[in-house]
Design a protein around this nucleic acid. Sequence first.
DNA 1: TTTTATAATTGACCGCGGTCATTTTTGATT
DNA 2: AATCAAAAATGACCGCGGTCAATTATAAAA
Lengths: 197, 197
Amino acid sequence: MTRAPQKRRLETRARLLEVAAAIVQEQGYSGLRVEDVVARAGVAKGTLFSHFKDKDGLLAVLIGDEVMRLLDGMEAGAPPQGAAELTARLAPHLDYVGQDRVIFDLLLRYSGTTAAEPDEVVTAGFIRQVTLLTRWLEVLQTAGRIRQDQPPELLAEGIQAFLNHVLGVWFCMEHDDETPPAKALEPYLKAWLKPAR
Amino acid sequence: MTRAPQKRRLETRARLLEVAAAIVQEQGYSGLRVEDVVARAGVAKGTLFSHFKDKDGLLAVLIGDEVMRLLDGMEAGAPPQGAAELTARLAPHLDYVGQDRVIFDLLLRYSGTTAAEPDEVVTAGFIRQVTLLTRWLEVLQTAGRIRQDQPPELLAEGIQAFLNHVLGVWFCMEHDDETPPAKALEPYLKAWLKPAR
DNA sequence: TTTTATAATTGACCGCGGTCATTTTTGATT
DNA sequence: AATCAAAAATGACCGCGGTCAATTATAAAA
């Protein structure tokens, strides 16, 4: 008979996340070192890896939480009225992911998965985002403001592809180019959602 | 006055690449360890890092070469006659990249760059692929077989986005799903290139 | 040939993520 | 209280990518 996780353990886990979030706040995602986290949390290194599969597993929870918060904001507002407005609604997401390559890499690594395990907040976020997009697109389709010849799921996943594309280009440019992701996304969305005969 | 790289140095570099390619052949990209390469090449570790920025830099050359070979094959054949045939022409690329996550990650990291440095074969390959796609799409446009309302460059880069998308999903599935990237790509291409009013 | 500046190479060393046999804590059982 | 098994935590240890001051090889200058 296996026992449920005890209170003390959950506290430790919470403290680890708390400390990690604080360090990210101070030094950015790329500055997060496992040794710092465990030191400030007052636990041994092995403990961290008993709570999270690896460093990415820890980051996934942090980033997943943030994505969830962004999605709360997106869901709260009114659905977009047209293809152009869609870009604006996605801008917060692009801004967040675009600020640090670590976020982007991690989201890419997990964002295609459909099976959601307890800790996989990232995966859950991905599913939620595609679901939200699909719902929006359905509305736009019935309103006749975008193409109707494709299922909304396909269109939604296509938008995901474009999101990642413009972000990938953004990071490869190393910010020489001053075209922010949100701006770069527009032509793709316009062409992708344009009504077809 | 700086001197040109000497013969001996070039030989060392060539030997490193040779050995690395052999090890990849035997154990796959993920099995490549820097220590093995330098051991079999008969040089010190530091030497490798004077020839390549880091491990990825070495892999980039290997993978870039392979991509170039694939592109030779693509350019040799006749251009595709329609949107559907495009998928088939891209299949070799998808098969190659889809075989190992390391390849995918590395190509993603570099594939957005436009500035090509001497060693950046990956970048050169990316540019060449987009150029080739653009040329094909131009032909298809004048033949009236795909949409004409968007510049071929945009359509080409959109295809890149879809390529990466289906590959990303492919790797996240960990091969539970039996839909190969080439198959998954089709609906996106059809919808993306479909003539619009 | 000797000297000299620079190119090329070396390998001890470091940082950091991750492991695992061992120890400590905990909560149920007698 | 004493005993015991499972859970949790520990920290010495490892693998491996990457660095850099020191050393050696090389080609031009004197």
